[in-house]
């Protein structure tokens, strides 16, 4: 039995990610048990952890702190495969500019920034939020990329982002997207994998990523 804990801290729709995991589990012929939970025991007993997040970072961090989710995530990161999604990825960083500046978990060094009101590409004004399907360039090989062509499109929806910069290599940025600026779209450190996009909403390529995660032992 492959036990997956989807960490629930009351922010947004976790149905999609749970359904997507059940779907790919069935495709693999795996017996999987997906729990959407904030119960420390269930999370500790799970084989793999999903750390999702939607909405504003201030509200997310308030709930993460109130429910003491941070220590559960830290513990999981030390011991088993963890997949962080969207605001879940941002929450791993030191700090976010959103909501006037919010301290995050500081599991990974870096600051989350706003795209800005004057975001442009080739002189053309870009809409914010960055919403829709964008290409992800795979910088480094990783077991989770298996079966996913380089520059596949994934579904993004966000107004804040982790910049792809000179610190990217030490942060473990393994996937990059261009939207006026270079966005760190995927981070991977040891048994932790984090995406700014939503794999559960990215059709076949997203499902492949989740399928790979269900089979991943956390080794690179």
């Amino acid at each position: 039995m492959n036990k997956i804990a989807v960490i629930d801290y009351g922010m947004g729709n976790l149905h999609s990610v749970a359904k997507a995991l059940e779907h790919v589990g069935a495709q693999l012929g795996q017996q999987i048990e997906v729990s959407v939970t904030s119960d420390p025991q269930l999370i500790a007993q799970s084989d793999r952890v999903i750390f999702p997040g939607v909405g504003a970072i201030r509200d997310c961090m308030a709930e993460i702190n109130r429910l003491n989710i941070g220590s559960l995530v830290r513990e999981a990161v030390l011991s088993k495969p963890v997949f962080a999604i969207c605001v879940g990825m941002q929450a791993l960083m030191d700090r976010s500019e959103e909501n006037g500046g919010v301290d995050c978990l500081g599991i990974i060094e870096g600051q989350v920034k706003f795209f800005g009101e004057e975001l442009k590409d080739d002189g053309q004004k870009l809409k914010v939020p960055h919403m829709g399907w964008n290409e992800v360039e795979q910088l480094t090989p990783h077991p989770l990329w298996q079966g996913i062509p380089d520059r596949s499109r994934f579904y993004f929806v966000h107004s804040y982002y982790l910049p792809h910069d000179s610190r990217s290599a030490e942060r473990g940025v393994v996937g990059v997207t261009r939207y006026g600026v270079d966005v760190a779209a995927v981070l991977a450190q040891k048994n932790l994998f984090a995406t700014q996009f939503h794999p559960e909403k990215s059709q076949e390529v997203g499902l492949t990523l989740l399928r790979n995660f269900l089979q991943w032992d956390g080794q690179v």
């Binding site: 590409d121 870009l126 960055h130 829709g132 399907w133 964008n134 290409e135 520059r151 261009r178």
Partner: peptide
Amino acid sequence: MGLAKRII
């Protein structure tokens, strides 16, 4: 390379 226009 960039964001795709969506068909819904």
